[in-house]
Simulated scan of single mutants.
Amino acid sequence: MNKERGNLHLIKRINRRLVLNLIRERQPISRASVAKSLHLSRSTVSSIVDDLLQKKLVVEMGYADSSKDGGRRGVELGFNPKSAYGIGVDIGGTKILTVITDLEGEIVYKEKRPTSQSVETIVSFVQAALHAAQLSEQDIVAMGVGVPSVTDIEQGIVVDAPALHWDNFKLQELLAPHFSFPVLINNDVNCAALGEQWLGSGNHSDNMFFIAIGTGVGSAIIANGQLIYGHRFQAGEIAYNIVEDDLNYNRTNALGSFGLLEQKISGTALNFADMSSTDLFARYKQGDVLAQERVQRFIRYLTLHITNAVNLLNPERVIIGGGVSESMKEIIDEINDRVNHYTPIRTKVELATLGGEAGALGAIAYAFNEVEESQLL
């Protein structure tokens, strides 16, 4: 009996999501058209729509035009993105970005402040954001928090965040009592990937490989619409990737230390002779010989690791984000061409478009996804 109830509950959740997504995609649309398109009974659709209307996720937009045979006009439905909001908090080593959006990702408030290790300070930032946006806690579906660390998303624990001096830090448990809405924690690169998937270059792709190149290097994997976490939530740690030269010289990686790939392609690795990575790419564009040599080496290493990832994961898109990516416009086509030259598995390599907002927006996307899965939205 319990199994039957569980299966029935799952079917209801699936049908509810199908109905809501169809209304979002094809609004304005009548109940009858929803039922016909999804092959659901009218009574099932009416029950779901009544619930969505009660929660203000859907609104009635007036009567449709009369049918050709003069039949009864149906009330058309539309999605209401202003029915609720989400908060995204991107905690970095130097700054904390707080963003509030509606259900379609339109930003209604954002603010960047100096970073803090204090939970009380982070709480005050969120409360100030709500006040400035003229929203109450009842308007918020959930809050997502991105942290530069391996994160245990099931327990809400920051495993190790050296920049914040957090070690096995129970961030979710400490934040949750301050708010009436759900608080969810995830890794910052995972969040940035979800942000690009939702509102950026990812273009809603269900199969995407995201690489963040900044001070360090990280990646996130989205396969069949789901983030891939791996054992102990460490999937995507490409900073530790190696090449044959590392084997020849017996170079090894150590957990928590700068990885061997990071030592080759990160912003830190690209800095030399008081020249930042931004300066390096500018000089590359101008034809500087030394800059040409270093950037070409960067391209070779990056192409190698992207190609191997494409062979392993078969992503539709590879998105490159992080601070270094903002200087890569001149070389992205070359990287895309090289990757597609070295592997017969087709993909498209592109630069991220959301910049520094990707992590906070992706934290909101993660929070929305999780509460929708729980049918709280």
Rank of each mutant, 00 (worst) to 15 (best):
L97N: 12
V99E: 07
T101H: 03
T101R: 02
L103E: 08
E104Y: 01
E106T: 14
E106C: 04
I107M: 11
I107Y: 01
V108H: 09
Y109K: 01
E111P: 01
R113N: 13
P114G: 05
P114R: 05
T115I: 05
Q117E: 14
I122W: 14
I122M: 15
V126Y: 04
Q127M: 14
A128I: 03
A129K: 10
H131I: 06
H131Q: 13
A133R: 08
A133L: 05
L135G: 08
L135F: 04
E137W: 08
Q138I: 00
Q138C: 01
V141D: 14
A142C: 08
A142R: 10
G144P: 10
G146Q: 06
V147P: 07
V150T: 14
T151M: 13
D152R: 11
D152W: 12
Q155M: 14
I157E: 11
I157V: 15
V158S: 12
D160I: 05
D160P: 00
P162A: 09
L164W: 10
N168R: 14
F169D: 07
E173W: 02
L174Y: 00
L175S: 04
P177Q: 10
P177N: 11
F179W: 03
F179N: 07
P182E: 00
L184E: 09
I185Q: 05
N186L: 14
N186G: 08
D188E: 03
V189I: 11
V189Y: 05
N190Y: 02
C191K: 00
